[in-house]
Amino acid sequence: MRSAPRKRKITAILIGLFLSLVTAACALYLLSVRTASSGCIAEIYQNGRLIRTIALYQVQEPYTIEIHGEGGCVNRIEVRPGSIGVTWADCPDRLCVRQGFVRSPAIPVTCLPNKLVITLRAADPIRSAGPDMITY
């Protein structure tokens, strides 16, 4: 029969191990996220629906688009060569504007009040432009 303090210590160590494991897993994942050397494709979601896809690596000149949501909410999005961000919004906290411009798939831009999410994924021009299959 183990004493109570000892049992407590074991529980504490187990919890500590669990928390370290979660942290390590997250760190490993963030390190392994593919850095998009070939450029990114931005996908704009509203209410979970994909409403626009923009190949950022093909953008030559910056331009802005406006996304209107339900209830008349607006997000002004600026598309730049290789990056994308929200420059103006009518949401209360403007956290989407503060997130700035993103250029990596590691982190999306989100405007929770307007239910707008911009995610990036790595474009793979080699796979899309090359042959489907090579056999020898």
Binding site: V22, T23, A27, Y45, T110
Partner: peptide, 16 residues
């Protein structure tokens, strides 16, 4: 709320 799986990419930041 957003019905967008993309928001899950915040998890590796938010959990630690």
């Amino acid at each position: 709320v957003t019905a967008t799986p993309g928001v899950l990419s915040y998890l590796p930041f938010l959990a630690p």
